[in-house]
């Protein structure tokens, strides 16, 4: 790998620009493929460029048999995102485990006294009202949204925006009873049952989690299953 390729890869990642590295597996010559352009020492045919762009969407590397030989296309995408609404107790382990699992984590809570607490130091915190925050963060198919506040004013505001987005996972903390009441309120706001079926509640896999850390594990486990089984980016 020539230095220019390594430097371009690193700066694309720093800028959050999706890119794929194409490597000829015999010669080692390489090219970079961006969403709108490609280039490098390795000449790529249209099929290989298309395969590289496909890998950038699925976030999975692949080997491609080209007329010139085998080429490995290796996507380097910005991390998938986890948006956590509510700087509550469970958020403390959730933002950490989420970051460890590779997510770019953003914590949303308009209540300064909650969000500015020490456990969240070093994490990206947005103190706007959840609907404004979520509109601005614009969840995409590589984003998970989890609400934890238990406060309908805050949770419902976030869920409304999340449900209108292509977020791959939406979860909301609360008991079965709380969840039923939540769905009832959202239905009144005009969401159909098939929309509401996207909301995982009670949130997380049923592993008998009790402590905040265990609940965070169950939530990340459910997000992982949704993302990997469905093969979304």
């Amino acid at each position: 790998m020539i230095r220019a390729v390594l430097d371009d890869l690193i700066s694309a990642r720093a800028a959050g620009t999706p890119v794929a590295l194409a490597t000829h597996l015999e010669t080692g010559t390489q090219a970079l493929v961006f969403a709108d352009r490609s280039g490098g020492e390795l000449d790529l045919d249209a099929d290989t460029v298309a395969a590289a762009r496909k890998a950038m969407v699925s976030d999975r590397g692949a080997t491609v048999d080209t007329p010139a030989g085998r080429v490995f296309v290796h996507p380097f995408c910005p991390p998938a995102r986890l948006i956590v609404v509510g700087a509550v107790h469970i958020a403390e382990p959730l933002v950490r485990i989420g970051a460890l699992a590779g997510y770019g984590v953003t914590l949303v809570d308009p209540r300064r006294a909650f969000a500015s607490r020490r456990p969240f130091e070093g994490f990206s915190v947005v103190d706007d009202w959840p609907d404004d925050a979520l509109e601005r963060l614009a969840p995409d198919p590589r984003t998970a949204v989890v609400t934890l506040t238990h406060d309908p004013k805050l949770d419902d505001a976030a869920l409304g925006v999340a449900l209108r987005s292509p977020a791959f996972y939406i979860g909301s903390l609360g008991s079965r009873k709380t969840h039923a009441a939540r769905l009832h309120r959202l239905r009144k706001l005009g969401f159909a049952d098939e929309d509401l079926a996207r909301v995982h509640g009670p949130v997380g896999l049923d592993i008998g989690a009790l402590s905040p850390a265990e609940i965070a594990v169950s939530i990340i486990a459910e997000i992982t299953r949704t993302r990997r089984r469905a093969a979304v980016g």
Binding site: L9, I10, R13, D59, P75, F76, C77, P79, A101, G102
Partner: peptide, 8 residues
């Protein structure tokens, strides 16, 4: 694809 960044 976690951790790749640090490796590069």
């Amino acid at each position: 694809m976690t951790g790749t960044e640090d490796i590069l």
